[in-house]
């Protein structure tokens, strides 16, 4: 360790600099105001003390706020509690932090110091000794001639990752039954029900420009064995029902007097596609802006999705309520390896 006024540092750097460049060295040391003026030094001391005092006040403030402003039940009381606790914490941490930095900057000695880095290369004797030790060890173990031991060690090391990797891979999904991705709850004759109010939908009640969020009949907490199966089935079966002017529809297959139903699960990565623009008949996915044209079989007109949304074929039953005539014609949602038929 040496201070900046020793010549050794300058010499060392100059020898490494390209020719013609002179290392200017460290700038001359400038005394601070506090170094020459005792009054300024006293003032810095007072500022640091005040910052620490602020931290003390903040800590006391947090304790006071904890008792004085309990979160309570209403939004405004929670806001109040959060604000006072937060302000107190801000002062108690910032006071210590700013005080410590100001102390170090304005009161502690500010002479620049240079610490030379020692060379990383070991001495030649050390290196030779290390190689000697390794050679001795290898010869002693006899790894070159004891091939059975060598094979055993390599096998043991190769198998070592398996106890960790196998459970990890095995737990991914925990369920390799992919056939359930191919089918949903929709069957021939399943009524379309409103989500979340669970009412059947009369075709005559659906006005042009309407959008109805639809779940299949039977997808109800009372009719399923568990909440888990409710969520699993709902995730596959949700449908968006739209009524267009029949003249705007390009294909009427699977529709009923301008009413069309498409899976709400995006074919890109499975977000619920439900931003419907009534005037353009475009359906947007909120995640990656895939856009589907409802008037044209929900085919992709923009965005990363590659396939049209699967259509749910519908008609009406004897009472005029909308029913499905079949399940979706293809698996809903994003692609998976086994999707190819």
């Amino acid at each position: 360790m040496s201070t900046n006024d020793t010549p050794r540092h300058d010499e060392l750097v100059v020898t490494h600099a390209p020719e013609g460049v002179v290392d200017p060295g460290l700038p001359p040391h400038q005394p601070r105001l506090g170094d020459t003026d005792p009054k300024a030094s006293k003032r810095s001391e007072r500022i640091v003390a005040a910052l620490f005092g602020l931290s003390v006040l903040g800590s006391i403030g947090v304790i006071v706020a904890y008792f004085a402003f309990p979160p309570g039940e209403s939004v405004s009381s929670i806001q109040q509690s959060n604000m006072f606790l937060g302000l107190g914490l801000a002062f108690c941490f910032a006071g210590i932090g700013f005080g410590a930095v100001h102390w170090a900057k304005s009161i502690m000695n500010d002479h620049e110091k240079v610490e030379e880095r020692h060379p990383q290369r070991s001495s030649d004797e050390d290196r030779a000794a290390a190689v000697e030790v390794l050679k001795e060890g290898a010869a002693d173990s006899g790894i070159a001639r004891r091939s059975a031991l060598k094979g055993g060690l390599i096998t043991a090391l190769a198998l070592l990752p398996l106890p960790v990797a196998l459970p990890l891979i095995g737990n991914v999904g925990a369920d390799w039954d992919v056939s359930k991705f191919r089918h949903t709850m929709w069957r021939r004759g399943t009524r379309l029900m409103t989500d979340p109010t669970y009412r059947p939908i009369r075709a005559a009640d659906v006005t042009i420009g309407s959008v109805v969020h639809v779940i299949p009949e039977g997808l109800h907490h009372d009719e399923l064995e568990s909440d888990q199966s409710f969520m699993d089935e709902k995730a596959k079966a949700v449908v968006l029902l739209v009524r267009l002017d029949e003249r705007d529809l390009k294909h009427t297959e699977g529709s009923y007097h301008g009413i069309v139903a498409f899976s709400k699960i995006c074919t890109h990565v499975g977000c619920p596609v439900a931003l419907y623009e009534q005037q353009t008949h475009h359906l947007l996915c909120p995640c990656h802006q895939s856009t589907f044209d409802v008037a044209d079989g929900a085919k992709v007109v923009f965005g990363p999705a590659k396939r049209a949304l699967p259509q749910l074929p519908i008609t009406v039953d004897d009472e005029g309520y909308l029913i499905a005539t079949d399940d979706f014609s293809e698996p809903i949602g994003p692609s998976f390896w086994e999707r190819v038929k």
Partner: peptide, 18 residues
């Protein structure tokens, strides 16, 4: 009424109470 881009939510889809 479903103004502009907004779709219609008539009294069947969302009842007046809803």
């Amino acid at each position: 009424t479903g103004p502009q881009s907004m779709p219609v939510f008539n009294d069947m889809t969302l009842t007046p109470e809803e």
